[in-house]
């Protein structure tokens, strides 16, 4: 079991960065401050958690949490088959945190996805542009204040008429 040791290590090394450690359904969750995510991630990576399974984000608008946004890292150790969840909190007025692309290449596309859907930017990312939505899309659809039906993006295309002679058809 690697995990308990590393968690104590994190708590010792970065006491002010670790906001809380919780458990739910057998999963360990570590809550940290967003701007220090690289230090913590690096410590995990160097201690056996070699695989970044997933990065995602949560908009805590109505859920409540330390800050408005949480970027969630799911790490896995191929050695001991343990998993851990790291939640890095970023504030609403400055949604920015360092990019993990330098540690794992897989962060590249996933951070772009978070940037696109949540509007959280990543410092040091090589190519931070929209990935899912068109480049001219406005807003960030997975934020809780974005309506599910969108803001008329889906109705905004030219209508093509039947037939060759389009003027006559109208």
């Amino acid at each position: 079991m690697l995990l308990p040791k590393i968690i104590t290590k994190v708590q010792d090394k970065f006491p002010s960065v670790t906001l809380d450690t919780t458990q739910f359904a057998g999963e360990d969750i570590i809550h940290i401050q967003g701007s220090y995510n690289l230090d913590v991630l690096k410590l995990f990576r160097d201690n056996g958690f070699n695989f970044l399974a997933d990065i995602t984000a949560i908009d805590n608008l109505t859920l409540g949490g330390f800050e408005r946004f949480a970027v969630v890292y799911h790490l896995l150790s191929h050695e001991t088959a343990e998993r851990v969840t790291i939640k890095a909190y970023v504030p609403e007025d400055q949604p920015e945190l360092p990019s993990a692309e330098s540690l794992w290449k897989t962060a590249d596309w996933q951070e772009r996805e978070i940037y696109d859907l949540f509007g959280i930017s990543f410092k040091g990312h090589p190519n931070l542009i929209r990935i899912m939505n068109p480049d001219d899309f406005q807003g960030h659809p997975l934020r809780k204040d974005y309506p599910r039906l969108g803001r008329k993006e889906r109705d905004d295309f030219p209508v093509v008429k039947r037939g060759i002679n389009k003027e006559a058809a109208q």
Binding site: A53, T56, D59, T62, L63, V72, H74, D108, W109
Partner: peptide, 27 residues
């Protein structure tokens, strides 16, 4: 992988899929 966050309501607060295709294609 699926990642579900619940706020205690009858609908999930957030549902995330860890899509293997995305990671596999990113290389």
């Amino acid at each position: 992988g699926f990642y579900i966050v619940s706020d205690g309501g009858r609908v999930p607060y957030r549902v995330r899929t860890r899509p293997p295709s995305l990671m596999n294609y990113s290389i």
